[in-house]
């Protein structure tokens, strides 16, 4: 279970003089700081998939980076299974599995070595690691090529390896930042199947994307972020409304008509 309350994250503007007129007019620019995230809240229960939507630069990636403790929040609260991320980032990191569309692999390592390295960094023993990697390999059908160097993998193989790496430590929450961006149809399908699998296992998933068809297919909850603030939060049925297409519903919310 994940709860995010009134999250804010700001960055100091390095060269204020170089800002364009449009950037200067952005309401998130306050003095020497730019608020990438100003007031974001959402909640995701066990077994739910929450779609995080928003235009480019809305603050989705920053929100997910703070959620996964890569960045520190300036304000607000994040709780994962009752643990406050700011107070115990190590526990939060153990609880989260993170994957994005542009997550890379160590090309000179094999897929097995890539996954095992992260398992060991998560504190798993050599034996546990071996067992878990084999389990994931069977589940994602990776056995035939897992011991080849990952620099020779296809995009589908790479994405399967990245998925296995993200969940090797059996996280209780999975965060996906545009996981299908730049992927071909087969690799996208692998990710979609993976999300379905997590949902079946009752694992909460936070899922940011620009593909509304994926949201329609997988998500239970939708949160729309715009200009660093939560602009909409409801279940998928309410989001769609009566007879609306996903695109129309999304655009209406951005225009403030939703």
């Amino acid at each position: 279970m994940i709860t995010v309350k009134q999250l804010a994250k700001r960055f100091r503007v390095e060269n204020p003089k170089k800002l364009t007129a449009q950037e200067k007019a952005d309401p998130r620019l306050k003095g020497p700081f730019f608020y990438s995230v100003e007031d974001v809240s959402f909640h995701c229960e066990k077994g739910q998939v929450l779609g995080l939507l928003g235009p480019n630069g809305a603050g989705k990636t920053t929100t997910l980076r703070v959620l996964s403790s890569a960045l520190k929040a300036d304000k607000g609260e994040i709780a994962i299974n009752g643990h406050n991320v700011a107070d115990s980032p190590a526990i939060a990191r153990k609880s989260i599995g993170f994957l994005s569309g542009n997550t890379g692999l160590y090309g000179r390592l094999t897929g097995r070595e890539n996954i095992s390295y992260f398992a060991r960094l998560h504190g798993m023993s050599a034996k546990e690691t071996e067992h878990r990697v084999q389990e994931l390999s069977d589940m994602l059908d990776m056995d035939a090529w897992l011991d080849r160097r990952s620099e020779h993998y296809s995009s589908g193989m790479k994405q399967k390896t990245a998925i296995a790496r993200a969940v090797v430590h059996s996280p209780s929450v999975v965060v996906l930042d545009e996981p299908t961006t730049g992927l071909d149809i087969m690799a996208t399908q692998t990710v979609m199947d993976f999300i379905r699998h997590l949902k079946a296992q009752n694992t909460p998933v936070i899922f940011s994307t620009h593909h509304l068809d994926e949201v329609a297919e997988l998500c239970d909850q939708v949160t729309v972020i715009n200009l660093g603030r939560t602009q909409y939060m409801n279940d998928i049925a309410q989001f769609r409304g009566a007879g609306q297409s996903m695109n129309s519903a999304f655009m209406n919310i951005l225009r403030g008509e939703g």
Binding site: A70, T103, G123
Partner: peptide
């Protein structure tokens, strides 16, 4: 980014 998320 992935490496920064390990509990190390």
């Amino acid at each position: 980014e992935t490496l920064l998320l390990v509990p190390l």
